[in-house]
Design a protein around this nucleic acid. Sequence first.
DNA 1: GCTTGCCTTGACGTCGGCGGCAAGGTTTAG
DNA 2: CTAAACCTTGCCGCCGACGTCAAGGCAAGC
Lengths: 127, 127
Amino acid sequence: MRIGELAQRAGTSTRTLRYYEHQGLLHAGRAANGYRVYDDAELRVVREIRALLAVGFALDDIRPFVDCLRAGNESGDVCPDSVAVLRRKLAEVDAAIDEMTAVRDQLRTQLNDAINDRETPCCAMTC
Amino acid sequence: MRIGELAQRAGTSTRTLRYYEHQGLLHAGRAANGYRVYDDAELRVVREIRALLAVGFALDDIRPFVDCLRAGNESGDVCPDSVAVLRRKLAEVDAAIDEMTAVRDQLRTQLNDAINDRETPCCAMTC
DNA sequence: GCTTGCCTTGACGTCGGCGGCAAGGTTTAG
DNA sequence: CTAAACCTTGCCGCCGACGTCAAGGCAAGC
């Protein structure tokens, strides 16, 4: 499998795959003419990367998952390093949700106050 | 008031103030020697900007609030454009919270599955 | 041979809110 | 006179996951 086919099957671009390789996440052999050659296992790797990216992981955080897959596990999640990253990310997301919730409450207050403050002088002048 | 003093009173840097001016948010007069000169009202403007940035607004979104303050209002929130931005931002934050919550739930599931899957073969082999 | 479509490396652009440095001019205190 | 502490403009760096050329080499069909 060459890079174009892998990109298509993974639903991404060739540029992205070269980038992953540059980051050390994706492995490629080389044909005689210099073309990258991938075996089928790399498709799973790319899908793992894409799935974790979609959830909000950085490429650095994804490395343990890829290593875990390469070690022969069915899932990239089962290795200790992966679990550690999962835990850390979960804590981060929890914290982020708390922050966003506080922001949301403040925005609501601010919006209500703005509307009230606006109606008061408006009505005092027009009514 | 010159830029250093304004920066100090607003709790930020001179670099930041020049940036805000470059973005058209902050207004400065000029002394004979070319130094920027600010009147006291600009301090409120800077604080408004900082407060909104802290809540997650982009500088572009903050412009209406600053204009509103400059129009003589006590709060930058009361003008229609500001209210519109507040509403939009509130919707964005709500959506972001929903997304993050979904991510959190997936992470929890993934983490649980990982731990269960790991214990099974581990125990099968060692126990 | 010629076109078309694949592939290669390399390097710059993106977005936002600044930080930091260079290379000066100004003012004030000692 | 000089050091120190202000100020000026201008430009590069940063982070992250790529997009987007540029300039070329290889393969396959007509």
